[in-house]
Amino acid sequence: MSLMTTLLVVLVLSALWASMTTPLLRAALALALTSAMLAVVMFSLGATLAAVIELSVCAGLISVVFVSVISLTQRRPFKEYLARRRARLRRLWPLPVVLLALGIGLSFVRAPVQIALPLPATDGDVRTVLWNLRQLDLFGQILILLAGVFGVLVLFKKEAKDGD
């Protein structure tokens, strides 16, 4: 098994852990591990800038947001937790089996892989592409960030009114 295959297996296993584990905090940490593994895979494939952003933003910032949300919610009574855990396991136990069967089944398929590209493959520096060729994307990103900031402000403003 090559190093890349090992990394991909760990990536899927961490995602599986995030979706199957019952404590929410553990699920958030497993999601951070998934992001970190994805960053390693991206770095191995040569996408260094995207890997750094994935590691810092997705494994760092988003995990902090998840942990904050979880810490602001109340703890469940232990009996209810156990009952929920049993119900969750009943719903989720087929998932590893389905993933294993899907992986084995797809590995036996030998699809003819040929894709049509509309343009000849020309590639430059990522900064050139981002700042010169995809400027509209940057405007969109700025607008989305502003929308997010305003969304959070509105939510907190409402909360402050409720507290008054």
């Binding site: 996408a47 995207a50 933003v57 988003i62 430059g124 995809r134 994307d137 997010g148 959070v152 907190f156």
Partner: peptide, 29 residues
């Protein structure tokens, strides 16, 4: 075309962060 793919991934990550933060606020509400 790794440069183009990285530019798109950066856009996806920005959208992901905004979605998570706003939805987290809605969940808390």
């Amino acid at each position: 075309r790794m440069a183009l793919a990285q530019a798109l991934v950066i856009t996806v990550i920005v959208i992901e962060v905004v979605v998570v933060v706003v939805v987290a606020g809605v969940i808390l509400g």
